[in-house]
Structures are given as C-alpha cells and as structure tokens.
Simulated scan of single mutants.
Amino acid sequence: MADHGAKAALYDALAESAKALANGRRAELVDVLAQGERSVEDLAAEIDQTVANTSQHLQRLLRSGLVESRREGTRIYYSLSSPVVGDLWRTMRRAAQEHVAGLEQLAADYLGDRSKLRTMTRDDLRARLRAGDVVVLDVRPETEFAAGHIRGAVSIPITDLKSRLGDIPDGADVVAYCRGPYCVYADEAVRVLTRKGVAAARLEDGFPEWVEARLPVSGG
C-alpha cells in the first residue's frame, strides 16, 4: 500500500494552484494578465490596489508557478506562465457561474442592465469578418491590443471612444469586445455607440475566449 502521507503531500501540491487563486484580487490579476504582459504599476492601477499590495499578490502567484516575471530597468513585468493558467481561471469562472448562489445578482450590480444590449457569438463574428461587413472595435487599453487582438480589429480604447467617434464609418455595424464576460468596457462602448445612433453589439465574451477557440488573431 502506498504511504498515505505521500499521497496527502501529492494532493496538497495538486491543490496549490487553486489555493493561489483563492483570493479575489489575485483572480483579477490573472484575468488582466490573460490579456498579456503588464508591469506591477499597471496591474496595481487595474485592480485598484497599492503597488505594495499588488506585489505581494504577484509574489504568491509567482511562488505557485502561475505567473513569471522579468525585469526591464527599474520595472518588473509579469505574465501568465502558460496558457493553462488562463484555462484554469476560465474553468473556475464557469464553475462559479454554475454553482455559486447570487453570482448573477453580483454581476448585475457591477455590470448594470445588459438586457437591452445586442450581443454576437464568436461564430457569427467570424462569419461577419469573413464577409467584411462589420467593424470590430477592441476597446481594451492599447498595451493589451498590442499584445494580441482579433484579426481585423481596430483599437479604440474605451477612454478614447467618445473623442474618436468620427473614426467609425457612417452606417457601420459595430461589434465591440474587451477582456471577457465580466469586462465593462464593451458594454460601455455599446451604450455610447447606441446613443449616437450607431448599430452596435458586444462580443458574447472576450479576447481570451476567442484565443481559446483558436480563432484568427494578430499581434503579440
């Protein structure tokens, strides 16, 4: 019979990745890093934490092997250690969607009323891109667009959208996307465009899911 202590140690090690993600701020960090490499300072701003607190969370993820780091001058940059980490996060998220009570209400409290927002599936968007009859807006920050984006997409960060409405062709059918199903940028873009009379929809999820489905990408 195998030694039970050895078995316990094995299962403790197998649970290490889940333990590292068992914190909302670290989950946020993984969600942002699924878009591409970012500096500690950028990550701190994204999750609304101090650089010191963010560094502590990143060190925990680093010890678990979920992220890796590199130094460039005085700055330290982090990235996911492999695509499997992004898969793990998305699986955890899907499990929560299926089994965590009250999650829909929490999402609604954060995202607002989505009932009037048009959506488009990945398959439909791919077909529209092939037909060339849609404008795809990546409304994430420019650094994330540069790290990788849907092939054919145009970068207009949500912070610049109102000042760049003139960049969108008259009569265009627009699809906006951002980081994933709980990212507010695409929702806000659709609301802004709709108020201006532009036919707009949001991609049903986001760029990581597009990559996961092995659909065409550019950059990075």
Rank of each mutant, 00 (worst) to 15 (best):
residue 146 A to K: 15
residue 146 A to P: 00
residue 146 A to D: 15
residue 146 A to E: 15
residue 146 A to T: 15
residue 146 A to S: 13
residue 146 A to L: 14
residue 147 A to W: 04
residue 147 A to M: 06
residue 147 A to T: 05
residue 148 G to S: 08
residue 149 H to F: 01
residue 149 H to W: 04
residue 149 H to A: 13
residue 149 H to P: 09
residue 150 I to P: 10
residue 151 R to I: 03
residue 151 R to S: 14
residue 151 R to T: 03
residue 151 R to E: 14
residue 151 R to Y: 10
residue 151 R to C: 08
residue 152 G to L: 11
residue 152 G to A: 06
residue 153 A to M: 11
residue 153 A to S: 15
residue 153 A to P: 08
residue 153 A to I: 06
residue 154 V to Y: 08
residue 154 V to Q: 15
residue 154 V to P: 08
residue 155 S to C: 15
residue 155 S to N: 14
residue 155 S to M: 09
residue 155 S to K: 13
residue 156 I to P: 05
residue 156 I to E: 10
residue 156 I to L: 09
residue 156 I to T: 06
residue 157 P to M: 12
residue 158 I to W: 14
residue 158 I to C: 01
residue 159 T to C: 02
residue 159 T to N: 12
residue 159 T to D: 14
residue 159 T to E: 15
residue 160 D to I: 00
residue 160 D to M: 08
residue 160 D to W: 05
residue 160 D to A: 09
residue 161 L to Y: 11
residue 161 L to N: 10
residue 161 L to A: 08
residue 161 L to P: 09
residue 161 L to S: 11
residue 161 L to F: 10
residue 161 L to H: 09
residue 162 K to F: 03
residue 162 K to P: 04
residue 162 K to M: 07
residue 162 K to D: 14
residue 163 S to Q: 14
residue 163 S to D: 15
residue 164 R to C: 08
residue 164 R to F: 07
residue 164 R to S: 11
residue 165 L to C: 09
residue 165 L to F: 02
residue 165 L to A: 04
residue 165 L to R: 07
residue 165 L to M: 14
residue 165 L to S: 04
residue 166 G to T: 15
residue 166 G to R: 13
residue 166 G to A: 15
residue 166 G to Q: 14
residue 167 D to C: 09
residue 167 D to R: 11
residue 167 D to V: 02
residue 167 D to I: 03
residue 167 D to G: 04
residue 168 I to E: 12
residue 168 I to N: 09
residue 168 I to D: 10
residue 168 I to M: 13
residue 169 P to T: 12
residue 170 D to H: 11
residue 170 D to A: 12
residue 170 D to N: 10
residue 170 D to P: 04
residue 170 D to Q: 14
residue 171 G to F: 02
residue 171 G to I: 04
residue 171 G to N: 07
residue 172 A to P: 12
residue 172 A to D: 03
residue 172 A to F: 09
residue 172 A to K: 05
residue 172 A to N: 02
residue 172 A to T: 03
residue 173 D to S: 13
residue 174 V to Q: 05
residue 174 V to C: 05
residue 174 V to T: 08
residue 174 V to N: 05
residue 175 V to P: 01
residue 175 V to H: 01
residue 175 V to M: 04
residue 175 V to I: 12
residue 176 A to C: 15
residue 176 A to W: 01
residue 176 A to G: 06
residue 176 A to D: 04
residue 176 A to V: 01
residue 177 Y to W: 02
residue 177 Y to K: 03
residue 177 Y to D: 00
residue 178 C to H: 01
residue 178 C to R: 00
residue 178 C to Y: 04
residue 178 C to W: 01
residue 178 C to G: 01
residue 178 C to P: 00
residue 179 R to E: 05
residue 179 R to Y: 06
residue 180 G to N: 03
residue 180 G to R: 01
residue 180 G to V: 01
residue 181 P to E: 08
residue 181 P to R: 06
residue 181 P to Y: 04
residue 181 P to F: 07
residue 182 Y to K: 03
residue 182 Y to H: 08
residue 182 Y to C: 00
residue 183 C to M: 01
residue 183 C to T: 02
residue 183 C to P: 02
residue 184 V to L: 05
residue 184 V to D: 12
residue 184 V to W: 05
residue 185 Y to W: 03
residue 185 Y to P: 00
residue 185 Y to C: 08
residue 186 A to C: 04
residue 186 A to V: 00
residue 187 D to S: 10
residue 187 D to M: 05
residue 187 D to H: 12
residue 188 E to V: 13
residue 188 E to T: 14
residue 189 A to C: 10
residue 189 A to W: 07
residue 189 A to M: 06
residue 189 A to G: 12
residue 190 V to L: 03
residue 190 V to A: 11
residue 190 V to Y: 01
residue 190 V to S: 03
residue 190 V to R: 03
